[in-house]
Amino acid sequence: MVRYEKGHKDETRRHILDVASAQFHESGIAAVGLAGIMSEAGLTNGAFYTHFESKEDLVREVLLDALSRREERHKDNLENGVELVTTIREYLSPHHRDSAGTGCPTAALVAEVARHPKTTRDAFTGKISDIIALMAAQIRQGSSGERRRKAIAIYATMVGALQLSRAVNDRQLSEEILEDAVEAAVNLARGR
């Protein structure tokens, strides 16, 4: 029997999550198989079940992990006084558009998540609600209800524009989509 150092199982699980996340972001959940994930991770298919019950369990964990990281960025921004406008500009940048593998899981996977089981959608919904609340906290004008409505509109604009900018094959149109969405989202954030 092979003995592993303490923490090996956690490191292996983290590695599988990272590989799966990049593959899901780049190719979509449905197009990625467990064999491809485990091969890229340098592990056997059988090792998968030591860490996850099923592909759906992996999908849910990837979403929770990636959205938790994004949530932490929003918390850090709020605690450090970073304006929502900065977040909008970074999110709707050509760099983010061109980095689907490491970018926002919402923009990369939202259409597929809508077709997943309730448990996965519940996890996704909880994290999205948390992110929206953090964005609303960065908006300084209006009642809490008005700030929440603006945050939802801003987030929806950001996600939709990023998806659209990635989907079109006309680079100039893609740039216009990003620039115009930045303007619209910034105007909402500033109460215009």
Results as ranks from 00 to 15, higher is better:
I132E: 06
R97M: 01
I128T: 12
R147M: 00
E61A: 14
G160N: 09
M135I: 01
I177T: 07
D130W: 02
K75I: 12
S93Q: 03
V113D: 09
A31L: 05
A20I: 06
R192L: 12
R60G: 07
R166C: 11
K75P: 01
F124G: 05
V113N: 07
S21H: 10
T86P: 01
R149T: 04
E40V: 04
E176R: 15
A35Y: 08
A184V: 13
H15S: 06
P94W: 07
A153I: 00
F124W: 14
D130Q: 15
E72Y: 05
Y4S: 06
G145A: 13
L164C: 14
S129N: 14
R192A: 03
L84P: 06
A185P: 07
P94G: 09
L67K: 06
T102R: 13
I132H: 05
L67D: 05
A133K: 15
L84C: 02
Y4Q: 05
E72S: 15
L109N: 00
N77C: 02
K150I: 02
L164W: 11
G145D: 11
A20L: 06
G101Q: 13
G33F: 09
N77M: 09
A100V: 15
L173P: 11
E56H: 08
G28T: 10
Q23I: 08
A181D: 03
S68V: 03
N187K: 12
I16R: 07
R192F: 12
A151T: 03
I29D: 00
A161H: 08
N77W: 05
I37R: 08
A100I: 15
E56S: 11
H51L: 01
